[in-house]
Nucleic acid binder design. Sequence first.
DNA 1: TAGATTGTTAATCGATTAACAATC
DNA 2: TAGATTGTTAATCGATTAACAATC
Lengths: 204, 204
Amino acid sequence: MTRPIPDIVVGRLPIYLRALSFLTAEGTQVTSSHDLGKRLGISAAQIRKDLSFFGEFGKQGTGYNVGYLQEQISRILKVDREWPMALIGIGDLGRALARYGGFAHRGFRVVALFDNDPAKIGQAIGDLKIMSIDRLSEVVQEQNIRVAMLTVPAKDAQKVADLCVAAGIKAILNYAPITLKVPEGALVQHTDPVTHLQRMTYYL
Amino acid sequence: MTRPIPDIVVGRLPIYLRALSFLTAEGTQVTSSHDLGKRLGISAAQIRKDLSFFGEFGKQGTGYNVGYLQEQISRILKVDREWPMALIGIGDLGRALARYGGFAHRGFRVVALFDNDPAKIGQAIGDLKIMSIDRLSEVVQEQNIRVAMLTVPAKDAQKVADLCVAAGIKAILNYAPITLKVPEGALVQHTDPVTHLQRMTYYL
DNA sequence: TAGATTGTTAATCGATTAACAATC
DNA sequence: TAGATTGTTAATCGATTAACAATC
């Protein structure tokens, strides 16, 4: 049996992956734990330790091949494929995410838009039409969707999250400023600009 | 001399504050470390320990007065005031943040919009006009702005962050998918939907 | 009073770092 | 070879939890 990997280690892998994409874009082919650490503000020892949970990806004396390490971390995080996502709540933020170019090549694609406002249903954003939230379960099953982003008002967020879980969604990225409860086996990540801002004002 | 407060503790205060706002909205007047912990998925002991870094806010046998604790945490985080913010990069996401209603009453307000696209400069969003990034330093000083949100393309983000710091910005919330370097004394928080999503796909 | 809950201490647990043999 | 860097171990550091006296 393999050791369980600490969540905090898994949480750093996307950061490493992002830095590796940057290096690839720059044309850099080789890096080291020291170089990566300096770029990310993380110790070299920690990067090596984190990677060692998953295997041996470097060469003594040389460092890491950027493309290879990128492939390996992509595989570990299961983003060596494209996860179809549902986007629920098509307000300003939902629209922005529907058009966001940053999902491509990082493992994700928005494939279905939902709202509960009859005035919005049927409208198109790019090549997707906004659907009624009533069709969530049907569409999630048809398209085998496991991931959803929630950009609904805070007061509706828990109810919509429950609908998602019932429909078979396993991972929710929540933009509403509220902590969601989901059953064992489902995952939530919260993203709230204000909590990030408040974490900084303490130090000002 | 007071003990320094661990960053990780400061980072949880905004979560507590958000839960307290929720309770206030619900009309709940009293809570306990157990109740808060259950809502947030955090142990009661940890909540009590975290709060104890800052003072004594509860009553044995009773728990915490929601309004009082909310006031105290707001004060600790310095969000018992309104921080004026600059928003730089008025694409889809920038527009959505410019219109976002969630800053009000949580300590922040967008007061200035910047872009470098001549076609956008002069356009209004709500009651704010988009200004040239060339005016950043001038406006930041005039309005005593210390906080900025960056919604610019990744390739420009570091350059714009440097401009911000030079202009006197002390806290940056970065939406570009890149790790920014800022000098000692300035703060950055990163927010990237893809890193959150990638952290979940590992477990799927 | 009896029950509940705080604030705090000490023990436990887990994460980070320093150091180094292995080796490219 | 000499210099550099990995992967890993052990030591250190820090965070979380359990437990409980104090007390509302």
